[in-house]
Design a protein around this nucleic acid. Structure first.
Length: 721
DNA sequence: AGACAGCAACTTTTT
DNA sequence: GTTGCTGTCT
């Protein structure tokens, strides 16, 4: 393979980044500028042109999806297997590191990764045991506090005792939680990263080894790294000057979960020899969409500076629709989609992007009503589902009988007559003697502590778990899973559930068997861990991407956050209202407001051909009617790039921006005097008067058959003729 | 054990 | 307005 194959398809800036003599590099990659491409080609360049062994290359991403894609693309480009190359998520790589060096990490070799759900349960249990008032210290906030500390690299021992009762209690819980995890060999997500960092930091030999091994370190979405992640990267690359990062400060939208946009600036300080390359050529969107996006993001301060451009034409103007309420907004969007599809286009070309999940419902209802297939992203992932976690808990428990969280989860699921009293007794003994729940249960049984009823129930349970684990040796992984879901009675249990909920759960359980069958044993295995153990870790680390669902052509619904990295020919960005987007919690803080603006920028730059933006004059939120102002972001888009859409005749005219007075429905011309309309009950009529504003707006209509009526626009369903 | 009522909560999400 | 959790009742 020659140079040309790797470089020919790139533009100048991309080429410069890909072929740079090895050293640190900051690629400031705008939306749609081909950043993954640069990363992939860079790796190919190193291997093929500079003859670097894949073993010396490390590439880190945030999501499993991105990691998988990168690996796949490197393999395609080079036509080799990239197995020996470390490509993975921060968490995945940290996990691998800890498994391989669990001794240095001071972890038992059976340590288990717990997900956020397990973490919350654990905290709840701990707090109960500690007698903490969960009104004053809501468990969710406690978890948030602990994770935030860990993300910053702060252990409980680093935190000063506080005279503030609230703070002090948090600290005590943090301590207790650390102890508990250490005792039971549990590692949460934040812990993976922190522990991986500490292990390298405190083991000179290990650190030397990995520094020598990873001569080339690459990071995707660098703007999303948190403190510990960046510290880990620095540790690995210190004195090596070999950190190649790709990111976009304008797309940093995860500050709220610890991402430090500052890392981009710090990088420039910490790696003074780095080269900075800007990728500003955009291959995704039309000129107008880019102009609008550039103008919007220019309102942020302290950017690294970047302006997207395209060689393609301006394309259509951005369409703005002012709906009178959220119903109308949904109606508008769905009508446009129908039109698009009727013209012979794909539904999957269309995305509806919203700020908060709660907004999806309106659109779902309208889509459902029109029989338009759609898919909502987000929500529960496969491995997060209750029934799946229950099944996994059985697998956990049969492997590791002293895993208390697995025990708690399934001791009475499916219900087998183990009540609160029984469980409390077990818990008490376990705490007193510092032993696992499983052992405590056995001891109490031996002592004849329980009533015959409870005794029987527990006997059945012990027998079940013992049998399952006895059989496990002879069975394939998927057979074990199958065995578990059948013998445990989980299938039976969910079959009895009413509604299609139970049915879906049974299906999911069956799907779990498939997941086990497809599980690639070798992929993660360098040490001699059992296949089942690795499968369980896999389940915790990989949430099971949106399951390769039906390939049905459907409209895509998702939050702006989950749209990052994706692109669609048509994008509807909805709910551009003050208080919703930007969200109310963000408007008082300039930093958070700027993050909202970046989110808006991310949303706009998802659109390839057409971008529709809408807002509602009136929106029902938490059961109350609201009359929000249009989002400030609308005013930041140059008005000449916008056209206002009218449902009726598609009249377009520039929108007046920078004005406090917005157009009210009454005067916006949607219902003009003389307008012919149709009402579901009253039939056809003519509008004679309009009065009021927003949701109070009323129209007087003379119906041919029903006579004169006053109707509230927000309630009446009027069709414009 | 399961059903139901009363209660607060409620941005964004990957691992 | 909807959801999810808790506590109480049958």
């Amino acid at each position: 393979m020659e140079v040309a194959a790797i470089i020919d398809s790139l533009n100048d800036a991309q080429r410069e980044a890909v072929s740079a003599p090895s050293r640190s590099m900051l690629v400031l990659a705008g939306a749609g500028s081909g950043k993954t491409r640069v990363l992939v080609h860079r790796i190919a360049w190193l291997i093929k042109i500079e003859h670097i062994s894949p073993l010396n290359i490390l590439a880190v991403t945030f999501t499993n999806k991105a990691a998988k894609e990168m690996r796949g693309r490197v393999e395609d480009l080079l036509n080799i297997s990239a197995r020996s190359m470390w490509i993975g998520t921060f968490h995945g790589l940290a996990h691998r590191l800890l498994r391989q060096h669990n001794k240095e990490a001071k972890l038992p070799d059976t340590f288990q990764v717990i997900d956020s759900d397990d973490q919350l349960r654990l905290i709840k249990r701990l707090m109960k045991a500690m007698n903490v008032d969960d009104n004053r210290w809501p468990p969710k906030q406690v978890v948030w506090y602990i994770n935030a500390q860990k993300d910053e690299g702060i252990r409980a021992k680093h935190i000063q005792e506080s005279s503030d009762v609230y703070q002090q209690q948090l600290l005590l819980i943090y301590r207790g939680y650390e102890d508990l995890c250490a005792r039971s060999g549990l590692v949460d997500f934040a812990e993976l990263l922190l522990k991986a960092h500490e292990t390298l930091r405190d083991n000179a030999e290990l650190l030397e080894f990995y520094r020598a091994r990873f001569k080339y370190v690459h990071v995707d979405e660098f703007q999303d790294t948190n403190t510990v992640q960046y510290a880990w990267l620095r540790l690995l690359t210190e004195g090596q000057d070999n950190l190649f990062v790709v990111g976009d400060d304008d797309q940093s939208i995860y500050g709220w979960r610890g991402a430090k946009i500052e890392n981009m600036f710090n990088f420039q300080k910490h790696y003074p020899n780095h080269k900075l390359i800007r990728l500003e050529q955009n291959y995704r969107s039309t000129g107008n969409i880019l102009k609008a996006s550039n103008a919007l993001i220019a309102c942020n301060d302290g950017r690294m500076g970047k302006e997207l451009r395209t060689d393609d034409g301006d394309g259509d103007l951005i369409s703005l629709y002012s709906a009178f309420n959220e119903q109308d907004e949904a109606y508008f969007v769905v009508e446009r989609i129908r039109k698009w599809v009727a013209e012979g286009n794909l539904r999957s070309d269309v995305a509806i992007l919203y700020r908060s999940n709660a907004q999806s419902r309106q659109f779902e209802e309208k889509l459902m009503a029109t029989g338009t297939p759609y898919r909502v992203y987000g929500g529960l992932r496969f491995f997060d589902r209750m029934e799946i976690k229950n099944a996994l808990a059985y697998l956990f428990l049969m492997m590791h009988k002293d895993n208390d969280s697995a025990f708690e989860r399934i001791i009475n699921t499916p219900t087998r007559g183990v009540g609160t009293k029984t469980l409390d007794d077990i818990r008490r003994l376990a705490r007193e003697k510092q032993i696992s729940l499983w052992l405590a249960m056995l001891e109490l049984m031996k002592a004849g502590h329980f009533t015959p009823r409870a005794e029987n129930a527990l006997k059945g349970f012990v027998l079940l778990i013992n049998n399952l684990s006895k059989q496990s040796g002879e069975l394939e992984l998927y057979e074990q899973v199958k065995n578990v879901i059948e013998k445990s009675g989980l299938i039976e249990f969910h079959k009895k559930e009413k509604g299609d909920k139970g049915e879906a759960r049974v299906e999911n359980l069956e799907e779990l068997v498939n997941a086990a069958r497809q599980f690639d044993y070798d992929e993660d295995n360098e040490e001699n861990f059992s296949e089942l153990d690795l499968f369980l870790a896999h389940a915790a680390l990989e949430s099971g991407d949106a399951q390769a669902d039906d390939f049905e052509d459907c409209v895509q619904l998702m939050t702006l956050h989950s749209a990052k990295g994706l692109e669609f020919p048509i994008v509807f960005m909805v709910g551009l209202e003050e208080g919703l987007f930007p969200s109310r919690q963000s408007v008082d803080d300039i930093g958070r407001l700027e993050e909202e603006r970046r989110l808006c920028y991310v949303g706009m730059t998802r659109a390839m051909k057409m971008l529709y933006i809408s807002y509602a004059e009136s929106r029902r939120l938490y059961g109350k009617e609201n009359y929000p102002r249009p989002s400030r972001f609308l005013k930041e888009i140059p008005s000449e790039l916008l056209q206002e859409i009218r449902l009726r005749a598609n009249v377009s005219k520039p929108v007046a921006t920078n004005k406090q007075t917005k157009m009210t429905i009454g005067t916006s011309g949607r219902y003009q005097l003389g307008q012919r309309v149709r009402h579901v009950k009253f039939g056809e009529g003519v509008v004679l008067q309009v009065e009021g504003e927003g949701a109070q707006e009323r129209v007087q209509i003379n119906f041919a058959n029903a006579g004169m009526k006053w109707l509230m626009l927000s309630y009446a369903k009027l069709e414009i003729l």
